[in-house]
Design a protein around this nucleic acid. Structure first.
Length: 165
DNA sequence: GCCAACGTTGGC
DNA sequence: GCCAACGTTGGC
């Protein structure tokens, strides 16, 4: 990380059920920053562990609400580390098979950069040919951590009417 | 609230 | 290691 060439910034989309944790909740956090806990899917875990890096950009997506939409942009401020909520029996996402000495689940820290002036809705996204291949829009896509291409990133920023961050 | 798609579990 | 049953996610 410290030595050698800086790897290029990557782009992601993090899903959150809006009634559970919304971008407005994130905006209220100290430093507008939080740890992204509760991911309990191996494919998503692998990305958090191996691919999501400090400086990467993240779209914040609201699922299970109206409207379904990308609502803002975050920055990764800490790369993958053990999700301690898996060790805690009182936590909703407690998982007895994950041990502090050998953690199964990982999380990252993100910081809010901006809330879009207007959310970019799922319906809008579906109308854009360049976005037809977005992981988010694929049938049956349930991943809560998804890669986003640079092209997709720029297009969504354009739709949101914001400068690419 | 429904249900399709998907991941996980567990019997064999 | 297969696969049926089950639970969950999440769009509609």
């Amino acid at each position: 990380m410290s030595a050698g060439a800086k790897s290029p910034r990557r782009y992601w989309l993090f899903k959150s059920a809006a009634d559970c944790y919304s971008i407005q909740d994130l905006a209220k956090e100290t430093g507008k920053q939080t740890f992204w806990d509760g991911v309990r899917n191996y494919q998503a875990r692998n990305m958090l562990r191996d691919d999501v890096q400090v400086g990467d950009r993240v779209f914040f997506y609201h699922s299970n609400c109206d409207p379904l939409a990308i609502v803002g942009i975050c920055e990764v401020v800490r790369a993958g580390y053990p999700d301690h909520t898996a060790f805690d029996k009182s936590e909703q996402h407690y998982d007895p098979k994950s041990k502090p000495e050998d953690p199964t689940w990982m999380m990252v820290d993100i910081k809010l950069l901006q809330i879009f002036p207007e959310p970019v809705t799922r319906d809008q996204l579906k109308e854009i040919p360049e976005l037809a291949k977005m992981v988010l829009l694929q049938r049956g896509s349930r991943l809560s951590i998804q890669p986003v291409t640079e092209t997709e990133w720029k297009k969504v920023c354009q739709l949101a009417g914001v400068k690419e961050k």
